[in-house]
Nucleic acid binder design. Structure first.
Lengths: 241, 241
DNA sequence: GTCTATAATGAGATAGAC
DNA sequence: GTCTATCTCATTATAGAC
C-alpha cells in the first residue's frame, strides 16, 4: 500500500524527519548555526547524512524548518496570553503588571516544563536573536514576531496613557532583553547568586521580573520625551584627567 | 639593526599583528567564532594566511587574544567609574542611579565614539556572552569580569540595605541583560520604534535606562525574599481549556 | 525513503625558502 | 617576519543502487 503521508518507522518512536529536526534544534541552540555540522545532527538523530538533504534540501533550509516548526504556536500563545489579560480587565485595559506577565508566561512555562524541545527552541531564538544573521534565515522569525511587538506595544500604551513613544519603545525593548537573557540561560544568574537563584526556577524569575519591569515602566511613564539636543549628559570619558 | 620589538611596516599604518587582531575582532563580532575562517580574517587584514598562525598559533588562540587585548582596560574602567561614583557620595554610599550609570558609562561612551575597535569588541562580548562557549575560550573573559560583578553587587547592597540577596542578584542580572542587548545592537530597537530611538544614540538610551532600572531596584528592595515552596503562581498553561 | 559512494570545496595547520 | 606550497581533514551536497 502506498503511504502518502509521513509514516512512523517500525521500531523508532519518531519518524526520521522529526528526529532530524529535534537533533538540529538541540545542536543549533547549543552552538549556533555555524558551530554545528549536518553530520553531527544526523549522527545525533541516528540517521544517514543524505537523509537530511533528502528531507530539507540544504543546511540553511533545515535551520529555517527548525524555527518555523514552532513559531506559529509560539506567537499565537503570546497573543492569547495578552487577550486573556485584557479580557480579565474590566474596561479591556490590562494593567502593566498583567501585560508583562502575559509576555513571559508561555515561554517561562515551556522552558521550566519537561518539554525539552520547546526549551531548546526558545534558547535558540534567544541566543541567535542578538546575532545579525542573514535575512533569508531571519525573515521567517521576524515576520510573525513583528505582530507581537505591535500588539503588546498598543496594550502597554493603553495601560500608560502618559508615556512618551520613545520611552515606551525603549522600556519594552529592555523587557525583551531581560526575557531573552533568562531564556538563553547560560547559568550566569545561578553563578552570580552563588546558587541562590537556580537557572531553572522561572517561577521565581517571574515574581521578580514583574515588579522590576513594571516599576521601570511607571518611572518612564512619568518622564518627558527626550529633546534632540543633549550636551554634557554623562557620556564623555576621554577628557577627564 | 635588529628590531627586537614589534615594528611598523614601511607603508602600512599598523603592524601585521594589529591588523590581524582588528580584522578578527570585526569578523568575530559580526558572525561569531564558528562563522568566520582564518582565511577571511587574513584576507580582510591583507596579510597571508600563514601569518595568523605565526603570530597566534591557532584560531582559538587568536580569538583569545582578541578578547584579552582590551579586557583589562575594560574592567579597570568599569571599576574606576564605580570608584568615582562612590567618591562623589558624602558617606561613600553611592545611590542606585549613580551605580547604574557607572556600570554603563564607559561601554556606552566607547560604543558611540568614533573608535570602531572598541565598539566591535563590546559587540563581540555582548553577543557571545549569551552563548555557552567552551571554557578555555571563555575563561579569560569570566575571570576579570567576576571581580566587576562582586564590586558592583556590594555597592548596590550598600545603596539598598533592605534588599534580599536573591532579589539583588536577579535585579543586577536584569540590568546586565539590558546593557548587553543595547551593546549587541542589531538595530532592533530602532526598527521597533520606527526610527524614533536610533541605535547609536546611547545618550538617550542611558537617560531612559537609569530611571527604568533604578525604579526596578527600588521595587525589589521593598519585596520580601521568595519562599521556596510556590504553587499556582502563574506558570501553568497546559491545563486550561 | 533509505543507503553507499563520491564529488567538490573549504577549512586549520605546517614546512621550508627567502 | 613574510611568503609559497602543501598536507590533512571535515564539510556540504549529489548520484545512483536498493
Amino acid at each position: 500500500m502506498p503511504q502518502t503521508g509521513t509514516a512512523l518507522r517500525g521500531s523508532d518512536a519518531h519518524p526520521t524527519k522529526i528526529r532530524i529536526l529535534d537533533a538540529a534544534e538541540e545542536l543549533f541552540a547549543a552552538r549556533g548555526y555555524h558551530g554545528v555540522s549536518i553530520r553531527e545532527i544526523t549522527q545525533m538523530a541516528d540517521v544517514e547524512v543524505a537523509l537530511a538533504h533528502y528531507h530539507f534540501g540544504s543546511k540553511e533550509e533545515l535551520f529555517r524548518h527548525v524555527v518555523t516548526r514552532r513559531i506559529d504556536e509560539h506567537c499565537n500563545r503570546l497573543l492569547a496570553e495578552l487577550d486573556r489579560a485584557q479580557a480579565a480587565a474590566p474596561n479591556g485595559v490590562a494593567p502593566v503588571e498583567d501585560i508583562v506577565r502575559a509576555f513571559c508566561r508561555f515561554s517561562f512555562a515551556k522552558t521550566s516544563s519537561a518539554d525539552a524541545g520547546w526549551k531548546r527552541y526558545l534558547q535558540l531564538l534567544a541566543r541567535t536573536s542578538q546575532l545579525p544573521m542573514y535575512e533569508p534565515v531571519l525573515a521567517p522569525i521576524n515576520r510573525p514576531y513583528g505582530v507581537i511587538i505591535v500588539r503588546y506595544t498598543e496594550a502597554l500604551r493603553a495601560a500608560l496613557p502618559t508615556i512618551q513613544p520613545g520611552n515606551l519603545a525603549t522600556a519594552f525593548y529592555m523587557l525583551q532583553g531581560i526575557v531573552s537573557r533568562l531564556l538563553a540561560d547560560t547559568e550566569m544568574l545561578e553563578r552570580q547568586s552563588h546558587g541562590l537563584c537556580p537557572a531553572a526556577d522561572f517561577a521565581s524569575h517571574l515574581e521578580r521580573l514583574v515588579p522590576f519591569v513594571a516599576a521601570g515602566f511607571y518611572a518612564l511613564a512619568g518622564q518627558p520625551e527626550l529633546s534632540g539636543a543633549r550636551n554634557g549628559n554623562g557620556l564623555e570619558t576621554e577628557s577627564a584627567a
